[in-house]
Amino acid sequence: MKRILIADDHAIVRIGFRQLLMDSFSQLYIEEVEDGEQLLKSAFAAQWDMVISDINMPVINGIIALQKIRERLPDLPVLIVSMHDSSKYASHVHKAGGAGYLSKDVAATELVKAVQLILAGNKYFASINVEG
C-alpha cells in the first residue's frame, strides 16, 4: 500500500489527481490538503511514500513547503506540479531538493509516469535536463 499526500487549493485538480492515481495504481491511500500549512501538518503527522504539491497555494507556497519538508524528512520525495510551464520553476524545485517537477497541462500518462518513477526512487524533471 503506497501512501500519497496531495496538496492543491483547487478542488477540481485534487479530485482529478486522486481519480487519475486511483485508476492507475491498485493499492493506494490518498489524503488531500488545501494549503501549504495543512500540507506540512499532514506531512509530519504520518508516514508518506510521496507528496504531490502545487506551487501557488494559500498560507505557505509549495516551494517553501518543499524546503521545510526536506529539512525534516529528507527521504520523502516531493513532486511539484504547477500551472506555470516554465523551466525556471523546474530548476528552483530541483535546487530545493524536489523529486520532480511537472506542468499541470501535461497528459495524464505523463503524470502517472512521473509518479511511478518517483515512487520507485527516481527523479522526474521533464522540462530541464538534470542528473537524477
Binding site: 478542488a11 477540481i12 485538480v13 485534487r14 479530485i15 482529478g16 489527481f17 486522486r18 481519480q19 487519475l20 499541470k104 497541462d105 501535461v106 497528459a107 495524464a108 503524470l111
Partner: peptide, 13 residues
C-alpha cells in the same frame, strides 16, 4: 478542457 487533470476532476465531481 485541454487539461487531463481538470477533465478527470470534473468528471468525478
Amino acid at each position: 478542457d485541454d487539461h487531463d487533470l481538470i477533465l478527470k476532476g470534473l468528471k468525478q465531481i
